[in-house]
Structures are given as C-alpha cells and as structure tokens.
Design a protein around this nucleic acid. Sequence first.
DNA 1: GAAGCAAAGACATGTCACAT
DNA 2: ATGTGACATGTCTTTGCTTC
Length: 244
Amino acid sequence: MDFIFSILKDFYSCCNVPVKAIDYDLVDIHKIGYDDYFDHIYPSDDIGKQITSFEGSFLNLNLELQNDIYYRIVSISKFNRGRGFFIIGPFRTNIISNKFNTKVLYKPSICANYLSNLILDISDDKFNQGLNRPSSNPYVRKAIEYIHSNYYDEITIESLCNHMDINKCYFCSLFKKYTGTTFSNFLNNFRVEKSKMLLSDTNLSLLDVAVSVGFNNQNYYSTVFKKFANQSPSQYRSLTYLNK
DNA sequence: GAAGCAAAGACATGTCACAT
DNA sequence: ATGTGACATGTCTTTGCTTC
C-alpha cells in the first residue's frame, strides 16, 4: 500500500475526520472522507478563497473559514522526500463535558493540535517501520500506544509489564534502549505536552488540568511541567491563552 | 482560594551483574 | 536475546508555608 495513503487510512479510521495529502503545487496526492456531502457543504477545493484568518507557523497552520469552519495544515516534508502537506478538516468549535461534569469549551485549535499530533505520530511510526528502526520493538511500541490512549489514567510499569507479560527490569532496559529515555520521563513528557493544549485552549484550573492528564497532584504536576517546559504552567498559560 | 515552593520520607524505577 | 535479584537512584506524595 502506498506510504502516504496508509497514513491517511489509519488516521481516518482513528478519528473519522476527513484528511488529504497535497503536493506543493496544491494537487491532491490522496484524500479520504471527502464524500459528496462534505464537498457540497464544506468545499475542500479553493480553500484559499474562503480563508478569513489564520494562525501558526508555515509548517503547522490553522485556517479559519467562514461559519466557524477550520482546517489544519501539517507539513509532511519529513516523510515525503521534502514535499507536501496534510490538510485535516473541516471541524468546528466543540463544547463537551469533562470527567468532572464541567462544560468545557474546546477551541478548534485543541482539536487541531490533537489531530495534527495524531497524524504525525502515525507518520513517524510508519516512517520508522519503513526504515526498520528500533522503535518498532513490539513491547516498546505497545507501551507507547498504551500511553497515547491511557495517559490520563494511572499508569505504572508494573501493571503495564503484567499486561504484556514481560519482566519489569527487562522492559526498563528495552524502553531506554529503543527510545533513548526512561519510561517515566517519556510518560511525563507526553502528559506535559497534552496539558499544554488544555492550558492554552480551556479555562480549567491547574488542578483540573493536572488530573485530566494523569497527574494525581498539582504540586508534582507543576514541578514536572517546569522540568520539561522551563516555565510554570501558569506562566505558559499567560503566554499562550492571551494570544488566542 | 489558587498557585508556587521546599523538604522529608516512602516506594517505584533504573541499572548492573550475572544466569539461562 | 531474554530473564532475574539486589541495590542505588530518582520519582512521587504529603505537608506546611508563603504570595498574590
């Protein structure tokens, strides 16, 4: 199966959001999810004419169209010989209830961040598989997949190793060998990255943010955040939230 | 009240050496 | 390559204090 198409297929099966890959000359390489309905309601062609605002860098761009319609453009140059983009969308502002039954307004950027991270994760994994890189170790890959989908729950090496039926000490050495970092470092870094989205895109308190990404207490969350981001969560929020 | 910080103790994790 | 035990190390929790 074509490399780019297999990425789109996995992405679409994960989140059911239309996605397409285009070349630098704006010609479609592949597209999935753009049926007649979407093409009629949200024309995916000539997006340039409908743009009302945009934010982000050239390689990771948010596009806002009329009527609260958003797209995210993600560079795939790393995976496609230096050429091309993914276009994810359309999607709209969403209001949902979190685990505390509090209504949270998720700005489109949080959806976009999640979706662009997802497609980059999938791309990276397939890219590494293609190169036969060590990250394709089944235990390490399973553990990373587990972190990606359960980071907000309590995760211990012991439970993970029991689940995978592998020795704990052996798993630690495997994880370090194939990722270059320890399991807890990897997990905390992932949680911090997820929390950044909540800090910049929601009005949740720091405690709620900490709990939402799997930290049991706010003090420790702040310490870990500072370690990876070189600033406190509130500093990060004040710099990013006001700019949106 | 929310957030940040520090310190101390418990215990989970990482590493090493060695065995299979 | 895989698995295990021992032990050092680092993570995490708890508590209490200060600041805004």
